[in-house]
Design a protein around this nucleic acid. Structure first.
Lengths: 339, 339
DNA sequence: GACGTTGACTGAACCGGATAAGTGAGGCCA
DNA sequence: TGGCCTCACTTATCCGGTTCAGTCAACGTC
């Protein structure tokens, strides 16, 4: 089917292309009667302006990009990204912006994608996930002058705009809660150690444990996968002075940990309390349901998308704080059993 | 930063825009020496052709669209879509096609998105998920003449190209396996009843149960969420003649079902065998690990993407079969305990 | 040496919009 | 009645590529 162009609308309305453009974009320069006639004709023949042509003259692509740097296996199982995308998308499509997605293998590939997208004028800006400590993408984006919003921080985002949540406060709340229940040996299974938020959580964990006098506080690192989470748990629970509570950096590892504990004959929460980060519906699926640090991830994504549109519109690149994750106690935490 | 255009390259090379275009696209019309000089200059100043300008003259957007019609909550928790997207993306980015994503509320919104994308020339084709029985999107796409590949079937895809997997055979295999273990009362918790593949599985389930003489075969419907899956399981297990095995249409519901069974004091697999559809890593996280009908979902997505690019290139719209899901027995299935 | 052929390029048109500059009719005012 | 302004348009240009139709020099050919 031949797709109608602005010239088709103009011909049927008996006016020039320019008049049609003014009419459909709400610009002055046409009478109200003519505008309505043109709008009606456009609707009738199903005209929508070519985004390419519009981008070419208007210089705006009406699209933003999101590059994801995780293997398919982990992307699939972690609800985080899909929920984030849903939120981003809801905000974007409300303003008829498109979302362009790409999965990349590493940071260099990601930088190359940004460079290409910007060169091709395919996107007006990008959202940056998985902020790392000393992240090479930040200077690259600054150099390109590609509008961007970093999802993560605080800190390490250079001159770029960012949206961050206070993971340190959330972790502190979780540790304080466990300590109040009577736990003295708390361990943590962290995510990828070079992610900035892992670093932040690790520091906060050390700090609060020191403050509360919890001496055996140990952090082990993992890669967010269930396999690794399970292995880390097995290692922790096999040690001489095994912890009475474990905090996991995502829900998938927490579920794997729960499974390992039960397999080793430990009762949860009797022998071991478990706290998960990222309160997805998964946490309520297992038995006992997991105490979790949750937040509204689609809202987080929507927030970031909104900020990106602001930055694209020329507003200053600020660092704004999103909701702090809050603890939802469920069946997986209880006072430690006296031994 | 000012982004370089073809004119910048032409100026520095001392040739016309046309020559640059020929050189970079491997067209005849420039000498090999000049071509190499132009390519070197383009690389040096970091030129990548504007996708908008190219789309405007070449009439191809170098992008394909994917609209997802599920609430954020379910999109997030089901690994299926994210894995599918990874696979699609891998195939597309290898040919430097972009993927444009949109989450929609319902079929009408989805049709409107297709209409807009096509009108705006934003995409060259689309992938269609979640095929329904008597799907309104099919005639709409046919009418638009928008290149499309339906992920689903067989049947109900009209004149459109499709990639499908033989769910009926897979379900038959699972039932036969349970029957061989000695199960006589097998139930099934299905997904959304108006999805085509739910229908196909339901028919296959009825058929194989009839053939094997399993009279109490009952199917209940759900919405793929853990809550609903758990509720359905509770209902099934509370009935007078409770089943000794349940087949779930996705892994999330299976995990919820496992949890409900254990909560009701039933042992899995002693009192109840469980089979999950979609063998994501989740199935190996829980205890006991779930017997599952799995397949390579990223490969499925890649396959569909490849077909879409073929259709865009003008090849005939065929219906091709992908891998049939295969059963991986794990700890959640065993012969029924004699009562 | 006149003629056709080929190769290597240039110039210009075109894609479909946005938009600045120009035009002509009508109204207002002195 | 002439001059000026505003309104409602039209015309022309531009965005950055692709591509077709020339142009022009070098070459081979009889």
């Amino acid at each position: 089917m031949k797709r109608p162009t602005i010239a088709d609308v103009a011909r049927r309305a008996g006016v020039s292309k320019g008049a049609v453009s003014y009419a459909l974009n709400g610009q002055p320069g046409v009478s109200e009667a003519t505008r309505q006639r043109i709008v009606a004709i456009a609707a009738e023949i199903g005209f929508s302006p070519s985004s390419a042509a519009r981008a070419l003259s208007g210089a705006t692509a009406e699209a933003v990009g999101l590059a994801l740097c995780r293997p398919a296996r982990i992307l699939g199982i972690e609800p985080f990204f899909m929920e984030l995308i849903s939120g981003v998308e809801a905000e974007l499509s409300a303003r008829s912006y498109a979302l362009t997605l790409q999965v990349v293998a590493d940071q260099d590939a990601e930088i190359a994608v940004y460079r290409r997208w910007w060169g091709e004028r395919r996107v007006d800006g990008v959202l940056v996930c998985d902020l790392r400590s000393d992240d090479r993408r930040i200077p690259a984006l600054e150099q390109l002058q590609l509008p961007a919003v970093v999802i993560g921080g605080p800190g390490g985002t250079g001159e770029l705009a960012s949206v961050w949540s206070d993971d340190a406060a959330a972790l502190t709340e979780a540790v304080a809660y466990l300590a109040a229940l009577g736990h003295r040996r708390i361990a943590r299974v962290g995510g990828l150690p070079d992610l900035r938020h892992t670093e932040i959580r690790t520091e906060a964990f050390a700090e609060v444990c020191r403050r509360l006098g919890l001496v055996d506080a140990v952090t082990v690192w993992s890669d967010y996968s269930g396999e690794e989470g399970g292995r880390a748990t097995r290692r922790l629970l096999s040690s001489a002075q095994r912890p009475t509570a474990v905090i996991y950096d995502n829900d998938v590892m927490a579920i794997a940990g729960l499974s390992v504990a039960q397999e080793m004959g430990l009762s949860v929460p009797g022998d071991l309390s478990i706290v998960a980060w990222d309160d997805s519906p998964l946490c309520r699926l297992v038995h006992p349901p997991l105490t979790a640090l949750g937040r509204d991830i689609p809202a987080y994504g929507a927030h970031a998308a909104r900020r990106l549109l602001d930055v694209i519109a020329g507003q200053p690149a600020t660092r704004v704080q999103d909701e702090t994750p809050h603890l939802t106690p469920r069946g997986s935490t209880a006072p430690p059993r006296a031994r």
